[in-house]
Amino acid sequence: MNARKRRRIAFVASLLLGGAAAAVLVISALQDNVLYFYSPSDVYTKKVSAGTAFRIGGLVQKHSVKHDSGMKMQFVVTDGARTVPVEYSGDVPSLFREGQGVVAIGRLNEGGLFQADQVLAKHDEKYMPPEVVDALKRSGEWQKGQ
C-alpha cells in the first residue's frame, strides 16, 4: 500500500469519526428533547409544571377506563411505579384498551389531572396469530413475567 492510498484511508476514517462526533454532540445537546413522551415517573422527577404541553406515555391501567356522559372519558396511565390520571374527550384508536400502551398529548391542570387533546395507541413488538395467544392463555404462559 503506497503512502497516497494510506493518506486517503486516513481521510475516510476522519470523515467517519468527524460525522460520529458531530452526531454525538448534537444528540447530547438535544438530550430528552428527543424523547417522544415522558413516563409517569418522569412527570414526577422532572416536576413538569401545570399548563406545559407535553406527551405522556405508559400503559392504560387495568380497570381504570371510565366513560362519562357523551364523549368524555377518564383513564390512568401507569409505568408500574407511578400513575397519572388522564381526561380526554374524543375518539380513541382501535388498539386503545386496558393494559395496552398509550401516548396522550396535552397538559396537566393544577389538580394534577392530565387533560389530553389527542390519544394515540402504542403497540408492542409482539406479533402472533390469535390461536397461538389462545394456546398460551390455556397453558398459563400468557404474559408471564411482565
Binding site: L35, Y36, S39, K122, H123, D124, E125
Partner: peptide, 9 residues
Amino acid sequence: WTTLHQGES
C-alpha cells in the same frame, strides 16, 4: 429514546 414506533422485534 421513547418513541411511538414499536421497539426491535
